[in-house]
Nucleic acid binder design. Structure first.
Length: 348
DNA sequence: GGAGCTACCCCATTACATCA
DNA sequence: ATGATGTAATGGGGTAGCTC
């Protein structure tokens, strides 16, 4: 037995199986607890990226040459901030302790001459050139160490770095190569680190959103369960009334005096007892009116069509799938908003 | 058109740092 | 000291653009 409900100002009807177990479609959104599910996670596509700069490790050396020109000296940027990371090892924990003991900071872009160990950038100095070489050598040695099965270094970004990345993420949750290299330059990180940070940040956003969605569906399910119980009670009462009245009146004409609800039609198929709430009132609570003898499945189907959204607009997925696929688990594929899933390219 | 390459993404997982 | 938590980093798999 199915009930098609329209709860409140719900945008889409909610189809729920009445018995034996309440099941709901994941379309139960749009009520007063509606949540904004659309996130601009995938704002920038590759085809929008005019800058074809490659940002892999291997290309970082290629970028070094232009670094000093692209970096906005004197501009208000994170670089102009006094990073604890670059100034003192006291606040950044073991990573900087490692920096002290090993002579370089694993949090900074090693081959970058910009800000090593608390020293402001002075691109033209010979000392820096020599330091760069040392850093590059150290990086190479470090890479060997990692490749040789050494422990993976765990880096902690400074608060300034994190907050700057956070601000960038608020503006755009994906990166163009240019944005990536700019951020890497400003924060003295490797482009790969910036890229990974954005990936992890998107994952965290999605996880949080999933939790919110689950919570919403849980509330939705609880409400529908309550509604389901209430409707079952009413159904039982109506069946009792039907039996009572049909014993004293002819079955086709005996039900007009039953309580009516505003805007709600409740049809019971006499042959199979397949019933459906056809059009619910704006209010969630209603008392069904029973039409006996209206009876054929065709009538019910037609009535269900009436309950679909505005004429001319396509029927809701619940209405479309209802006939063929009456039961939806609460955590079907549609639980994850499609916008958060990988979207096909417009060109494909 | 298809193969190869590159870059990017998501996803699951690992590994480390920090905290209670 | 230890388990829980947060998160940087890694690796796999998929997709798209480009070149040959």
């Amino acid at each position: 037995m199915e009930l098609e409900l329209s709860l409140g100002d719900s945008l889409a009807p909610v189809k729920a199986t009445v018995a034996p177990t309440p099941v709901l479609t994941p379309t139960c959104m749009g009520d007063e607890e509606d949540l904004e599910l659309v996130l601009g996670v995938r704002a920038a596509r590759r085809d929008e990226q005019d800058d074809q700069t490659t940002c892999t490790q291997s290309s970082e050396e290629a970028m070094e040459g232009e670094e000093d020109e692209t970096r906005p000296h004197g501009e208000a940027s994170v670089e102009s901030l006094s990073f604890p990371l670059f100034v003192s090892s006291a606040e950044t924990g073991s990573a900087n302790s490692e920096m002290c003991t090993r002579g370089f900071d694993v949090n900074t872009r090693p081959a970058d001459g910009g800000a090593e160990a608390g020293r402001p950038s002075s691109p033209s100095s010979m000392q820096e050139v020599s330091t760069r070489q040392q850093v590059a050598d150290q990086e190479a040695a470090d890479d060997e160490e990692n490749g040789g099965g050494g422990a993976r270094k765990k880096l902690r970004l400074s608060k300034e770095q994190s907050s700057f990345l956070e601000d960038s993420f608020k503006e755009h949750s994906t990166l163009t190569p240019k944005q990536k290299s700019d951020l890497a330059n400003r924060l003295n990180l490797r482009p790969r680190q910036v890229e990974v940070w954005f990936q992890n940040r998107r994952a965290r956003t999605k996880l949080k959103q999933t939790e919110v969605d689950c919570e919403h569906l849980k509330r939705c399910c609880e409400r529908l369960t309550r509604e389901n119980r209430r409707l079952q009670r009413e159904l039982a009462e109506l069946r009792g009334a039907l039996r009572t009245t049909s014993s004293s009146y002819p079955p086709l004409y005996g039900l007009h005096h039953l309580p009516a609800a505003a805007g709600t039609v409740f049809r019971v198929c006499p042959s199979c007892e397949h019933s459906k709430v056809v059009a619910a009132a704006a209010s969630e609570s209603f008392s069904p009116r029973v039409f006996a003898g209206g009876g054929a499945h065709a009538a019910i189907t037609a009535a269900a069509a009436v309950s679909s959204p505005a004429a001319g607009s396509p029927p809701s997925p619940a209405a479309l799938f209802g006939a063929r696929r009456p039961h939806f688990g609460p955590f079907a594929a549609a639980v994850i908003p499609p916008v958060l899933r990988r979207q096909p390219s417009a060109t494909s």
